[in-house]
Nucleic acid binder design. Structure first.
Lengths: 375, 375
DNA sequence: CTGATTTAGTTCAGAAATTGTACTAAGTAG
DNA sequence: CTACTTAGTACAATTTCTGAACTAAATCAG
C-alpha cells in the first residue's frame, strides 16, 4: 500500500514537525514531481494534512503535518495495576483511556484487553480501520522481535509469547517493549527528543532503567539488555543487591533504596520530596542520603556520556519537582566525572512522567513500528 | 553509476562473505530477475566475481564474492612515526606499503602523501582508476563529517580541515577517523566482527580507547566522543589524571600507567609481558599491579556491556600473548560486575594489532564509506 | 498599479528500476 | 532414463522517479 518513500516522508515530518514539500524535496532527496504525487497520496489516505502556509519571497509554501486523526494506536501499560489502556492518535495525544485489572495470566489479560476495545475505540468515535496497531509495555526483558517477554520478575513471566497471544484475541499487529525503552520511543516521537538522532533516557523510579536511541533507532542490545544500568557497580564493596552482586546503582539511587535507607535511619518519608524538604530544613540524614544517591546517579550518567556521547540525557521521574539537592548533586557529579573536553556539551533535561505517559509510551512503540513500515 | 541496491548487495556480501544470488534474493528482498541483472552489472564492473559453486539439490548455485582487485583504498595511519601508508584491496589485504615521516604541518604531510602515491599504486601494478578513496587515522577527535580534526594532542592540532587539504593534493575522496574507531571499522569489514550488527572494541595500548558498532554502523557520538572510556572514573579518589580528574581508567589500566607504576615500585619492565613473567615467578608487586589494572578494565567493560549489551567485546592490544594474569583478572571482573542474567552471554575476544593493521583500519574507513555510497 | 522576479507546486511524457511469468540450465533421487 | 528440484536468465509489463515546461501566488521596484 505505502512505499518506503511514503514512510520516509512520514518519518521526517514526525521527527521534524510540519514541513513544506519544498523542504522535504531537499532533505529527502527526491524530485519535486515525485514529492508532489507522494504528498497527495498521503493526504488522500488522511495520514498527512496541510496546515498553515509560510511566506518569505515567492509563492507561499504549505506546511504538511501528520494528520492526528489519520492513524491511531493502542497502548497498554502493565507498569501499574490496574493496567492503563489508551487510544492514542498519530501525534501522541490520548483520545480515550480505560483502566483494567492487570492479570498475570496472558490469555486472560489478552481477552480482557480485547473486551474493552470496542468501548475504547467506539467511545472516542474513531473508525476501527484507523486503529493500526498495539504496543504493550512491561517491566522486564523483551526479545529482539518485540514479540516475546523473555523474563519479567514482577509478572512472574518467562518466555511468554505475549504479542502472538494478544494478536489472537484482538487481530491487531502487536509489539511488546520494556517500559523504559518505550518511554524513550515516545520521547523521540512526541517529546523532548524529537529530531534527535541519539539520546539516552534515564528512568528514575522504584527501580532505575535507561534506554538509548542511536542512529535514529532504539538500541535494544544483543539480548534486549541495553540500558540495564541499575546493576552497574557504583560502590565497589557496597551493599548487597537483590541481583546477587554488591554496590549496584540500584542499591543507592533507586527510590526504593533511598526511602528504605531513610526509614532505616529514622526519617519519615514517603516520597523523594519529603526527603528534599527534610534536607532543606537541615536534616543531616536527609542531606547525606541525597548526596550519596545523587552522586551515584551522576557517576552512572557520566559513564553513559563517555561511552555513548549522546546528544542529550533525559532524566524522567515521577516527582512533582526535581530541582532540589538530589538533582544539584547529580549534575555536579556529572560535571566532575565527565572528561573536561566533553563536559557541559551534553544537555541534561528532566521530565515528570505520569501514569498516562506510560500508556502513550506503549502506543508509541506501535507508532514507531508503523513509521518503519511494519504493515 | 551504482544504485542503492548495488551497494546493498555489496554490503551484504562484505558482511556475510560469499553468497549465492538465490540467498541474496531472499535476504535482501528483491526479485530473481532484478538480482540477476544487478549481479551481472557488478561483475562487469569487477566489483563482484563468481567463485565456487555449491551443490545441494537442483541446479548448483554460484557463490558471488567481492572481487579483491575491483576496488582499492589507501589507508594512512598517523598513529606511529613514521606514518604508514598502505594500498589495501577490496577484501582488506595490503598489496603495497610505504612508510613516510609524519609531519604535523597538514599541507606538508598531504603533499608527502601525494608524492608517494604513484610509487605506492604503480609499484603494485594497480590501475589508478581502481583506487577509490583514502582514509586517514589519527589519535584525537574527528568531526561528524569525518573531514576535520577537531583536536589532537599528539599532533598539536585543533580544527584542522585535513580531508579537504589532502583532497586538494591527491584528488581522492578522503575521510578522517579516530584510530580506535577505524580499527573497529576494519574489524567489522574484514575481521572478527564480520556480520555483527553491534559490538564494542577496546583498544589497550599506551592509552585506552573504545569504539562501538550499533545497528551496523559506527556510532561516533554527538561530538565524535563515543568510546572515550579512558576517562571513566573507576577509582573514586584515585590518582590524578592528565585530564584533570582523578581515578580515571587511564591512570590504572593503560600500558603507560602500568609500566610507570611498575618502574616506580622498582620492577624492571618494558612490556606487559615482562610484568606477566614477573608475576608468574611470584613477584607480589607484579601480581598486585596486574590485579589492579585487570579488574579496573574489567569493571569498565562491564559498564559497556550493561549500558550497550553488544554482541561481542573485542579487546585489541599489541602484546604477543594475552592470556596471562591480566586477562584472567579482567575476565573475572567482567563476570563479577555484569548482571548475572546477562553474564556469560557476551563473548570477549582478543586480537593482537600490528602497525600495518592500523593502516588497514584507515583504509577500511574509506571502504566503509564507499560501501555506504559516498560516490 | 503594473510588470519583473522569486519561490512553490503540478503536469505529463519519458527514463530507470523492479517484478511476474515463462523459460533454460544443471544437478539429484529413484 | 525420467521425474523432480533448485538456480539463474529473458523479456514484457508495471511501478517509481526524473526533467522540463508549466501554473500559482506571493514580493519587489518603479
Amino acid at each position: 500500500m505505502l512505499t518506503l518513500t511514503h514512510y520516509q516522508i512520514l518519518r521526517f515530518i514526525s521527527a521534524s514537525g510540519p514541513t513544506t514539500r519544498a523542504e522535504l524535496v531537499s532533505r529527502i532527496g527526491l524530485s519535486k514531481a515525485a514529492m508532489s504525487g507522494l504528498a497527495r497520496e498521503l493526504i488522500d489516505k488522511n495520514l498527512l494534512r496541510e496546515t498553515s502556509t509560510i511566506q518569505k519571497q515567492g509563492r507561499p509554501s504549505t506546511l504538511l503535518d501528520l494528520d492526528p486523526q489519520g492513524a491511531y494506536f493502542i497502548g497498554v501499560s502493565m507498569a501499574s495495576d490496574p493496567a492503563v489502556i489508551a487510544l492514542v492518535d498519530f501525534k501522541g495525544e490520548i483520545v480515550n483511556r480505560i483502566d483494567i485489572a492487570r492479570s498475570t495470566d496472558p490469555d486472560e489479560f489478552a481477552q480482557a484487553i480485547a473486551n474493552c476495545l470496542p468501548k475504547l475505540i467506539g467511545g472516542a468515535a474513531v473508525a476501527q480501520k484507523r486503529v493500526l496497531g498495539m504496543g504493550v509495555t512491561l517491566s522486564g526483558l523483551v526479545d529482539q522481535e518485540q514479540a516475546n517477554c523473555i523474563k519479567s520478575t514482577i509478572l512472574g513471566w518467562q518466555d511468554v509469547p505475549l504479542a502472538k497471544i494478544i494478536h489472537k484475541h484482538t487481530h491487531l499487529p502487536t509489539f511488546i517493549e520494556n517500559d523504559a525503552k518505550a518511554l524513550a520511543v515516545s520521547e523521540r516521537l512526541f517529546g523532548e527528543a524529537r529530531d534527535m538522532h541519539s539520546f539516552s533516557l534515564i528512568w528514575l523510579g522504584k527501580g532505575i532503567g535507561a534506554a538509548h536511541f542511536v542512529h535514529d533507532r532504539l538500541h535494544r542490545g544483543a539480548h534486549g539488555g541495553a540500558g540495564e544500568i541499575a546493576h552497574c557497580t557504583i560502590e565497589p564493596n557496597g551493599l548487597p543487591c537483590r541481583c546477587g552482586k554488591t554496590g549496584c546503582l540500584d542499591t543507592v539511587a533507586s527510590m526504593i533504596a533511598i526511602l528504605d535507607a531513610a526509614r532505616a535511619q529514622g526519617l519519615k518519608a514517603e516520597t523523594l520530596d519529603d526527603i528534599e524538604r527534610a534536607a532543606a530544613s537541615g536534616s543531616s540524614v536527609a542531606i547525606r542520603l541525597l548526596h550519596r544517591a545523587g552522586s551515584a546517579l551522576g557517576l552512572a550518567i557520566s559513564q553513559i556520556i563517555q561511552i555513548n556521547d549522546p546528544q542529550m540525557v533525559l532524566v524522567t521521574h515521577r516527582e512533582e519537582r526535581f530541582d532540589g539537592l538530589f538533582s544539584t548533586v547529580m549534575q555536579q557529579a556529572i560535571e566532575a566525572n565527565v572528561l573536561p573536553r566533553l563536559s557541559g556539551v551534553t544537555p541534561i533535561q528532566f521530565r515528570k512522567v505520569a501514569d498516562a505517559d506510560w500508556a502513550v509510551g506503549a502506543a508509541s512503540v506501535a507508532t514507531h513500528s508503523f513509521l518503519h513500515g511494519f504493515i
